[in-house]
Design a protein around this nucleic acid. Structure first.
Length: 586
RNA sequence: GCACCUGUAGCUCAACUGGAUAGAGCGCCAGACUACGAAUCUGGAGGUUAGGGGUUCGACUCCCUUCAGGUGCACCA
């Protein structure tokens, strides 16, 4: 009996065949709509009968009965099939089918191989993090980095070639003021100690020294013009700003497990903008309005009057220009099948206008159009519901936030596991602290605001990183105590049929991983995966409390160890997909 | 003014994009370690899904409308 990774897909195909076999009228139009079910009803349910029967004035229960009769014998061998309510088809996997699946999908590699069909052969560019150079990363940069990385990993797991592109804000008017300030007030010692801190200091001085309509502002503008015209000194300064910024960013990224393939910031597109203006003019999508080159979308309720500005009246580019060039570069150079941009919801209008423009432009020029996704997320707020700030109202730097996470986790580890060595406790605190920050963000639907709470993210109960990491550590502990390697083939081969309610409940949850991965990757919403892992850890804890693993009967013990091993690999795989690092003890 | 997002238990969040009796954690109440990690588990109480209308076999989910909060809207990104 061959075992498919995604059992729901199998059932969907089997039901379509059954519709034909049963001779349903218009059988080709029947869509089974298979989905995971509430465990009380079964493992999977098919809801397609209701709509199908309704549209054709048939009795849905009679149609459901026909389908059940037409199902291939293998389906009945694997599942209990029942008709319920007005015409739901319920499928409950039999213990042997559960065990068969668990035997095949036993490692991260095998799970990956199973999941890889979804995006096989596709290239996806993910644009996330994207801070401005010469500035520190702050709490506002957290969500894009964390959510973006999780999305990258999920896409890669489902078979895509993923290109991580950090679209840095490394060009623009602020560099005139920065160079102006730098040339006057930069302190070499401070610069060596903490370059970004110093750049921020001299930028503030430069900004304060160049008020509107002042001769100083004209000097700052002149610095910018020199930079744009390729002046060697200013260009070297700008390059230095970028280099030290990237080095500082990487310190943060290392802590979050992020490594970009490219850092193609706005400056990269400077020499690619003329083509944009030319093509959009040529196909008559862009027009001049008040001196600026803009795009209107007459079919849109708002963008018919709200312009998408792609070149300013003074001839300078803006982020409309560079984002258009970016889309083209990703389509042409990377041959992207999909582009994902991860920014906060306030840029919704911009990307809606951008994507509308790209679709028309690519169609007119016959450029191949990738799928375009703007992945948005809400704000990070304090527990008062307002933007998260330091006590004195300042911006919270990302470095300080991660430091505090580790410190708070360290205090908890000291309390819970004083017997471990300090270096071990430090390492655990790093994994738990950073993981808590990442997971707090990923565990909830990204479209709403997220209330930042140390106590909640570091809690040991509930849908938190510590709870999940604890489940992982506890399973490792079982194998350590028994001196067995998780997933050991000789142990697995002894396993007898699953029997107890807790064993079956855990196994039924384990085989749902494919459905969860599909859902999370398709919707680009990592919280579906987080929720699944939390529920899985809960099922495991219930199983662990109900059924002793290290019993004398070798067959019972082997099957429970198999369940432990699969839970472990599923939790670890899932947490790694979210960007967390897991522990063997904590 | 136009548009987008959000509104679910006291609090923080889910609900598989239209499916069956809306679920968790915290907090509250009552229980479980001379068994493998109690950083855990088992039970209980707690709901007019902001209000109102509509669509249909079925609505937290889609449409209309009102209310509340947030955000964006001509040359910052």
């Amino acid at each position: 009996m061959s075992v498919s990774f995604n059992l729901a897909t199998d059932l969907d195909a089997a039901l379509k065949s059954a519709a034909l076999a049963a001779g349903l009228t218009d059988a080709a139009a029947f869509t089974p709509e298979v989905r995971t079910a509430d465990p009380r009803n079964g493992d999977y349910q098919s809801n397609g009968v209701l709509g199908y029967a309704k549209a054709r004035k048939l009795n849905p229960r009679a149609v459901a009965d026909q389908l059940v009769a037409g199902l291939a014998p293998e389906v009945h061998e694997r599942c209990e099939v029942t008709v319920a309510g007005p015409g739901f088809l319920n499928f409950t996997l039999k213990p042997a089918a559960l065990l068969a699946w668990l035997r095949v999908f036993d490692t991260e590699e095998h799970l990956r191989a199973g999941a890889a069909a979804a995006h096989a052969g596709q290239t996806w560019v993910v644009d996330y993090s994207s801070p401005n150079t010469a500035k520190q990363m702050h709490v506002g940069h957290l969500r894009s980095a964390v959510i973006g990385e999780a999305i990258c990993r999920m896409l890669a797991f489902t078979g895509a070639r993923v290109i991580r592109d950090n679209h840095l804000g490394d060009w623009g008017t602020q560099f005139g003021k920065l160079i102006y300030g730098y040339k006057r007030w930069a302190d070499p010692t401070a610069l060596a100690a903490d370059p970004i801190e110093e750049l921020e200091r001299v930028y503030k001085l430069g900004h304060a020294a160049t008020p509107d309509d002042s001769p100083e502002l004209n000097e700052a503008r002149a610095e910018l013009v020199k930079l744009q015209n390729g002046d060697l000194e200013n260009f070297a300064l700008w390059k230095k700003f970028s280099d030290v910024s990237l080095a500082a960013f990487q310190q943060i990224y290392d802590r979050l497990g992020i490594r970009f393939d490219h850092n193609l910031g706005e400056s990269f597109y400077n020499d690619k903008l003329e083509r944009i203006y030319a093509e959009l003019g040529e196909v008559k999508i862009a027009e001049v309005s008040d001196g600026a080159l803009v795009v209107f979308h007459p079919e849109h309720p708002r963008f018919k009057t709200q312009p998408f500005i792609i070149r300013k009246a003074d001839g300078a580019s803006n982020y409309g220009s560079t984002d258009l060039a970016t889309a083209l570069y990703r389509a042409e150079h990377f041959k992207a099948d999909g582009i994902v941009v991860v920014t906060d919801f306030r840029q919704g209008d911009h990307f809606e206008q951008l994507f509308l423009t790209v679709k028309k432009w690519f169609a007119a020029k016959n450029h191949r159009l990738p799928e375009l996704h703007h992945v948005t997320f809400g704000a990070v707020t304090g527990e008062d519901g307002k933007a998260l700030k330091t006590r004195d109202g300042g911006v919270i730097k990302l470095k300080a936030l991660l430091d505090e996470a580790e410190e708070r986790a360290f205090a908890i580890v000291n309390e819970k596991s004083p017997e471990l060595s300090e270096s071990e406790r430090r390492e655990i605190a790093r994994f738990v602290g950073i993981g808590a920050v990442q997971y707090a963000d990923l565990s909830q639907n990204r479209s709403s605001n997220y209330v930042f709470s140390w106590d909640k993210m570091l809690a040991l109960d509930g849908n938190t990183a510590p709870y999940l990491l604890y489940a992982v550590a506890r399973i490792h502990s079982i194998f350590r105590k028994l001196a067995i390697v998780p997933g050991d083939a000789s142990t697995d081969s002894l396993a007898s049929a699953l029997e107890t309610p807790a064993e079956l409940a855990l196994a039924r949850k384990l085989v749902k991983l494919p459905d969860t991965i599909r859902l999370a990757a398709e919707t680009l919403r990592p919280h579906f995966l987080g929720l699944y892992l939390y529920e899985l850890a809960g099922e495991f804890s219930a199983f662990y409390a109900a059924d002793k693993v290290a019993v004398d009967d070798p067959a019972v013990r082997a099957r429970r160890l198999l369940l432990c091993a699969r839970t472990l690999v599923t939790l670890e795989t899932g947490l790694h997909l979210l960007g967390l690092r897991t522990l063997t003890r904590m």
